[in-house]
Every structure is written in C-alpha cells, then in structure tokens.
Simulated assay, not measured.
Amino acid sequence: MSQANPQPDARDLTLATTVHRRLREDILSGRLPPGQKLKLRDLAESYGAGASPMREALSKLAAEGLAEQLEHRGFRVAAAAPGQLDGLIRSRVLAECAALRESIRRGDAAWEEGLLLAEHRLHRVARSLDPHRFVTNPEWEACHLQFHQALLAGCGAPPLLAFCDRLREEARRYRALSNTLAYPGRDVAAEHAAIARATLERDAEQAAALLAQHYERTGAFVGADLGCGGE
C-alpha cells in the first residue's frame, strides 16, 4: 500500500507567509539590496524560520520577480537592471500622468482638501532620521505614499489607481537606491510642493510634466549608479 505524499504542515504555511511578507518588505525597502545572495541558513537564523517555510517564501518571491533562483546555488535578490528601471518609470509616467490629468478634470473640493492636507503633512516631517546622512524615516515614507495617492485620488477610476499602486510598489526598491544617492542634494520637498501647486491651480499639463520629471530624476540618479556597478 503506497503512502500518500505528506501535506505541508499548517504552521509551516503560516510561517512561510509571514517570512515572505518580511522578506518582500526588506527587498522593496532596499534593506536587502539587488544581487545580494539569499543564503538559506543565514535567512533561517535571521527570520526565525525553518528550511521548509523559508524555501516556500523564496520560491514565491522568485515567482514575483523579486528574487532569482540560481541553478544549484540557491537564491539572490533580483538584479536592478537599468532596462527594467527605464520601463518601470515610463509605465509610471504614462499611468500616473493620465490619472493626474483626470483628477484635475474631475476632482472636487474634498479632493483638493485631501491633497492640501497630504502635502502639508509631508512637508512637516523630516525625510531622514539623521541630518548628516540618509536614514529612512518611516513616518515620512507613510506621508509620501499618502501624498502621491492623494494626487490621483480624484480620477474616479479604481482599476487605474490599483495599477498605479502596483507600479509604485515595484519602484520602491529603486527609490530606496535613489534616496542614498541623492540625499541631501535633491530638494524633493520643493518638487512635491511644485506638483501640488500646479495640480491645485488645475494646470494639468504643468502638473503632469512636473510629475514626470519627478520620476525621471529618480531614474537618472539610480540609472547612473547601475551603469557603473555590476548586475
């Protein structure tokens, strides 16, 4: 009588989900940089998980394109290739500028108030926790996300907003690289203020142009660095 294949332990599946979420956040935030080897033993110790849930989490990350499986050599964080960055920025510019123009056309007083509040909150929070070097401030990151979402919130097209959110999340690890390269030389606060001002003045072409430049500056900083480094 043949024995049935053992089913994955429920606890392992739950742990794999938790580890996947934590690894994904660490990759997107840049704490695990592009190209870094993901050694099973080291990860199991760092994330408090056994080999089985860790492999499950890594396989899922590979399916999402955030990790790469190396033949007989485990996993590594997916490379941040210049060509991928160019395509991502182009996609963001096309999608978000369309959503921004539609928000300017359709947005009501409540949308304007939401954008004003989001820009005010972002302006009041320090971008870095250290005045001398870049150290991510989680509060600023949260306000930054809310600002960019508020810009587009008036478009009245939830599927488009969901697509923009997905592109924004994919861009997070590239932006994490940009933060370390551009800080403090880049005046991001001034860029945000200019985008908000043009948007509230209902100047769709100027607002869209400023938003596109905002993303393209990130691409210029990161692309130059990627061109000098390895994979």
Rank of each mutant, 00 (worst) to 15 (best):
A63I: 08
A81G: 08
A176K: 11
R173D: 09
A78M: 00
P8K: 05
G230E: 08
G229N: 08
E205K: 09
A220G: 07
D203K: 07
Y183C: 07
P158Y: 07
R168Y: 06
A110P: 05
R124L: 14
L66V: 03
A110E: 08
R31Y: 03
A171N: 10
Q7K: 14
L145P: 01
E25D: 13
L23V: 00
R172C: 06
A109K: 09
V19A: 07
H214M: 03
I195P: 01
C228K: 12
A51P: 14
E191S: 12
L100E: 00
E56Y: 15
C97T: 14
E231N: 08
D86E: 10
A204C: 05
P6H: 10
L43V: 01
A194Y: 02
S2H: 14
T136L: 15
L177P: 04
C164P: 01
R24F: 02
L122P: 12
G114I: 01
T199E: 00
R124Q: 15
D12A: 13
G154W: 02
L116E: 13
D130N: 11
R133D: 10
Y183I: 06
Q206C: 05
C228F: 13
L15R: 11
G87L: 05
G107S: 04
R166E: 15
A4H: 08
A99C: 03
E141T: 15
G65T: 00
A198W: 01
G219K: 10
V93Y: 01
R166I: 09
A99P: 05
P138C: 09
L23R: 02
P159D: 15
S46E: 10
R31I: 02
D130Y: 06
A207M: 00
G35Q: 06
Y215Q: 05
Q36P: 12
A109C: 04
